[in-house]
Amino acid sequence: MTDVEQIAQPKEYHVASFIGLIDMTQQHTVMQSIESTPGAEIHAHNEQGKVVFTIEADNQGVIGQLADQLKLAPGILSLSPVYHQYIEE
């Protein structure tokens, strides 16, 4: 990308939140998987196996790829998107 193309492209900020249902026997592994995901942050979890987290990135494609990877991680039974916000800087 040239300098002119970079100037013409607005910078983007995306954040998406997710609720996951996890296998509590693999809680430590799941938490490590989420925490090691670039831009991910865990905000809450409970004894019933629910975890709430966000992923931040500079485009929604990256968030989608990371969420798809996490869906397949050991111990994650289901993953549901809750919210997605997009801001141009």
Results as ranks from 00 to 15, higher is better:
A57N: 08
P38N: 12
A73N: 03
N46P: 04
M24D: 07
M31A: 08
A73F: 04
L70V: 05
G49C: 05
N59C: 11
G61H: 06
P38E: 15
A67P: 03
E35M: 12
A44G: 12
Q27K: 11
Q27F: 05
L79G: 04
A40S: 08
G64Y: 07
V52K: 06
G64R: 07
S80H: 14
T25D: 12
S36F: 09
M24E: 13
A67H: 02
A44R: 10
P38C: 10
M24H: 07
E47L: 10
V30D: 00
I42E: 03
G64F: 06
G49D: 04
A40L: 06
N46V: 07
Q32H: 11
M24G: 00
P38I: 11
H28P: 04
F53T: 01
H45R: 13
A73P: 02
D68A: 10
A73E: 03
E56D: 10
L77H: 07
P74D: 14
L66K: 08
K50S: 13
V82K: 05
G39F: 05
N59W: 06
E35C: 09
I55P: 00
A57V: 04
T37W: 01
I55S: 00
D68Y: 06
Q32M: 10
N59Y: 10
S80K: 11
L72M: 14
V82C: 14
Q26H: 07
M31P: 03
L77N: 14
Q48C: 03
G61N: 09
I22D: 03
D58A: 11
Q65T: 14
G49I: 05
L66M: 10
A73H: 04
A67L: 03
Q65V: 13
P74Q: 13
V62M: 11
E56C: 02
N59H: 15
T25E: 14
P74Y: 06
G64E: 08
M31V: 13
Q60L: 09
T29Y: 06
I22C: 07
Q60S: 11
